[in-house]
Design a protein around this nucleic acid. Structure first.
Length: 317
DNA sequence: AAGTCACTCAACCGCAGGACG
DNA sequence: GCGTCCTGCGGTTGAGTGACT
């Protein structure tokens, strides 16, 4: 016997929230604070699932949330955190005041992942795609085999699934993908420098993207209607929905905008420390004794291309 | 102008874990 | 230890919107 549903799904409203519904939640939380979300819909006069109310509050209505577009510094931090701990969005979001896990996750999926792909960096492993392909060749023992078929299930590419999917899905025109991935497929000076800035100088990552990357990002962020909260055209305010029902105030919550949100800081501090250690070690070159991380990858790429001059011709998806 | 495509992001879903009786 | 409830989390979906043809 499975768990009963949290509410009667057939009788609750779903979909986008109206300003009136938002106002009711704001009014309720202003008086009683957050807590026991399963009771809030009834007490606030909402025909919504409690879970939905909590999500609306957490992701949109909380007074400490930012609603503007992500800054370059925030994007860099997201990428670095993702490289260190993967898709643990809530942990990453805690490093970004005013951002929610949903914000971070959406931004990653819609913007940052594509930026990395265009730079020839696998967004799951954060390794250069060319390096992944080389590792795949080593693991599969197909040093001279061409990629006529998909990698086997135990290959590195299918483990991450990203590099392979990237080449299959990000563009329907293979040529355009190759030309957009200077790390792998061109001999230009850009190949030597641009993509690897990430590894040595994370702060330069997003400033140093190609024009196509930055333009697509900046242009969309300007035109996105949801990025900046639109001034509501409304005839009422949330305070109009303040309830007189004297429900006991939730312990530990405040009735004003300075509500606090307890978090498991210890756990994340460990993660943050791990991240900073990684950054520090990279910056100081302690990961690699003789040369920098960047140099090592560059060397590996050059080595691979020299060993497999037919690499470009071998791909046929 | 109309239709189609691509993108964004708010919201939903299912699962896991913690608290509590 | 067990069952229930609540909350948090990550993955996914789909409505809305702008760009393109």
């Amino acid at each position: 016997m499975g768990r009963p549903p949290c509410c009667d799904k057939s009788n609750v409203k779903k979909g986008l929230w109206t300003e009136e519904e938002d106002a009711k939640i704001l009014a309720y939380v202003a008086i009683h604070g957050v807590g026991n979300w399963s009771l809030i819909p009834k007490k606030a006069g909402l025909n919504r699932c409690g879970k939905s109310c909590r999500l609306r509050w957490t992701n949109y209505l909380r007074p400490d949330l930012k609603h503007d577009s992500f800054s370059t510094q925030e994007e860099e931090l997201i990428i670095e955190c993702h490289r260190a701990i993967g898709s643990r969005w809530s942990s990453i979001a805690r490093k970004l005041p005013g951002r929610t896990d949903n914000d971070v996750k959406n931004h990653w999926n819609t913007k940052l992942k594509k930026k990395l792909m265009k730079m020839g960096i696998d967004p799951v492993t954060h390794k250069p795609v060319s390096q992944l392909l080389a590792e795949f060749r080593n693991i599969s023992g197909h040093g001279n085999a061409s990629f006529k078929t998909e990698p086997s299930n135990n290959s590195i590419l299918t483990q991450s699934n990203s590099a392979w999917e990237m080449m299959r899905n990000t563009t329907t025109n293979h040529e355009s993908y190759y030309t957009n991935s200077p790390m792998m497929f061109t001999n230009s000076s850009e190949y030597q420098t641009t993509p690897f800035h990430f590894y040595s100088h994370p702060n330069h990552l997003l400033n140093g993207t190609t024009s196509s990357c930055s333009s697509s990002s900046s242009s969309t962020s300007i035109t996105q209607p949801n990025q900046v909260p639109q001034t509501p055209v409304t005839n009422f305010y949330w305070s109009d929905f303040l309830l007189s029902d004297p429900v006991p105030q939730v312990v530990g919550s405040s009735a004003t905008s300075d509500l606090t949100f307890t978090q498991n800081e210890n756990h994340f501090n460990i993660e943050a420390e791990y991240i900073s250690q990684n950054i520090d070690s990279k910056a100081s070159g302690t990961c690699h004794s003789a040369s920098s991380f960047v140099d090592e990858i560059l060397d590996k790429d050059q080595e691979m291309l020299s060993q497999f001059p037919q690499l470009l011709n071998d791909f046929d998806y």
